[in-house]
């Protein structure tokens, strides 16, 4: 059959690439779909700071509006979860392991781990789950992992308030160290942000990695000392080399939990190494993550 195709009269004229580039340069057009310079990218992010905050709030609202009690669930849920875990690990199995104030210990572990795990789960998938938004609006894509992490911490706000109340009820003495509690949370936030930045580009490039994330969070939940004392467990290993213990104790999630426990609980005195290592993780992960994510800008949205 004859192809009724193009008509030579109206076929688009050939446009050599060099001439196109010259024309663009002459009128000072901006090229799209390419990675901006690092400085420009940071400035761009700053210009879009209001959008970041509005999106994070929106995310929080969207997550908590589909039922009658609305955002109250972000308070009720952690309390119920705390009770359940207390019954399982505190009463039934008994992982106390020499901790005096196990209730506070467990609550901190749980409430801090929840935003970490959600940031890992939804933060790493964000370039896939927000594809429609990416394909309809132009903005620096780094906003998306930032937004998701931010929204997880906004959602966790009520839980953190509950946490303070529980610590008071459980008889922890109020000291000046409590002022470090928000600082600790800030450090944890930047750790999560780093995870989300690195993970989201990886998952975008190899999306099968997204299926390993639940496994990773579960693993982290059990090795990071959420509901048992890591120190006591490490001490039980006979003849294990020191560095195994150090890795277990100072991997980001474990050190994050210790970081929050130290100012809040009298039985965990403040140690400089916890704070130094945690800050190093937070700073390093965020910086590496931001640069890593920026390197992929200009490729997001196609997959």
């Amino acid at each position: 059959m004859t192809d009724i195709g193009p008509d030579p009269q109206y076929s688009p004229p050939y446009l050599p690439a060099a001439e196109a580039a010259a024309l663009a340069a002459r009128y000072d057009l901006t090229q799209v779909g390419v990675r901006p310079g690092f400085g420009a990218y940071v400035r761009e992010l700053w210009r879009y700071r209001h959008l970041t905050w509005t999106l994070a709030k929106g995310e929080f609202v969207a997550e908590n509006q589909d039922n009658h009690l609305g955002w109250l669930w972000s308070v009720i849920n952690p309390i119920l979860l705390g009770v359940a875990y207390y019954l399982i690990f505190g009463v039934l199995i008994g992982t106390r392991g020499g901790i005096d104030n196990f209730v506070t210990f467990l609550t901190i572990g749980l409430f801090v781990f929840i935003p970490i795990s959600s940031a890992l789960a939804s933060g790493t998938k964000v370039l896939i789950s927000r594809i429609k938004m990416i394909r309809s609006l132009t903005f620096p894509r780094v906003i998306l992992p930032i937004t998701v992490t931010l929204s997880q911490f906004v959602s966790a706000g009520p839980a953190f308030a509950v946490l303070v109340v529980i610590a008071l009820l459980a008889g922890e003495p109020v000291t000046a160290e409590w002022l470090l509690f928000p600082v600790a949370l800030l450090i944890v936030f930047f750790m999560c942000l780093g995870f989300a930045l690195i993970g989201s580009r990886l998952v975008h490039a190899f999306r099968d990695l997204g299926n390993l994330m639940p496994l990773l969070t579960r693993l982290l939940r059990y090795v990071s000392g959420v509901f048992f004392s890591l120190e006591a467990s490490i001490a039980r290993f006979d003849g294990a080399p020191d560095w195994v213990g150090h890795i277990l104790e100072f991997q980001p999630v474990a050190v994050a939990l210790t970081l929050v426990r130290e100012p809040m609980m009298a039985e965990f005195p403040l140690r400089w190494e916890t704070w130094a290592i945690a800050s190093a993780w937070a700073f390093g992960l965020t910086l590496v993550g931001f640069v890593f994510f920026w390197r992929g800008e200009g490729s997001y949205g196609r997959a």
Partner: peptide, 24 residues
């Protein structure tokens, strides 16, 4: 400017906005 091209180059003079049924 929302889906980067796989190959080739694209230059724009100013800001582009997409308006469409899919603009969710």
């Amino acid at each position: 400017g929302v889906v980067p091209p796989t190959s080739g180059q694209l230059w724009l003079n100013g800001r582009a906005a997409l308006l469409g049924v899919n603009a969710v």
